[in-house]
């Protein structure tokens, strides 16, 4: 069962002695539903990774960094999790994110989706869905509403979208939300 796009899984493991990009490794690429599950079963659950590690699943040809030409005008829907959610919800939310990506869940706006990243961090894990054009309000909001629903987040939970250009200028990665849903 072929996927609309070929997807690349990346793994990041923090090593302060090396440059950021040298810690980023391409693991594998998948382009069928069957290959996706073979990959998913083969890798550690996100909740089992050590702090400082990331997974990223991006469309083939897009590197999981702001600087990529398909990302630099874009931004991300960010889901910040409390520490205790690592063991209760993290793996479920990440898998749901992956299924949104490979299943093309955002109708015609799926073409604006670049990928998703999960950050495993001691202070709280994060999952983000990256899109290519922060100025496309209609597309970004459509994706955000569908994504929030797919994650099963309650009405009172607010998630924000930040433009990468804003995040890049904030050393503490607390860029203001451009949109919220």
């Amino acid at each position: 069962h072929p996927l609309q796009d070929r997807w690349a899984l990346w793994f990041f493991k923090s090593d302060q002695s090396r440059a950021w990009k040298d810690n980023l490794h391409l693991v594998t690429k998948v382009n069928t539903v069957e290959d996706f599950w073979a990959m998913y079963r083969h890798i550690q659950l996100a909740s089992k990774l050590s702090s400082g590690c990331d997974y990223a699943l991006f469309k083939d040809g897009i590197e999981p960094m702001w600087e990529d030409s398909r990302n630099k005008r874009g931004g991300r829907w960010l889901v910040s999790l409390a520490k205790q959610q690592r063991h209760s919800e993290l793996d479920h939310l990440w898998l749901e994110t992956l299924l949104c990506l490979i299943g093309e869940s955002f109708e015609e706006h799926s073409r604006e989706v670049c990928g998703a990243v999960i950050n495993i961090r001691t202070k709280g894990d994060k999952i983000a869905l990256w899109t290519s054009e922060a100025e496309n309000q209609a597309g970004v909001l459509y994706i955000g509403r569908v994504y929030k629903k797919r994650l099963g987040l309650s009405m009172k939970t607010i998630i924000g979208y930040q433009a990468h250009a804003d995040s890049a200028t904030k050393s503490n990665s607390l860029a203001k939300n451009k949109f919220v849903v």
Binding site: H1, L3, Q4, V33, D35, F36, W37, A38, G103, S105
Partner: peptide
């Protein structure tokens, strides 16, 4: 056409043996 798959369809493949 566009290859769109809903979550239930994708989940049905989770435990199927893959041939790769």
């Amino acid at each position: 056409g566009k290859k769109q798959y809903d979550r239930e369809f994708l989940l049905d493949f989770q435990f199927m043996p893959a041939c790769i």
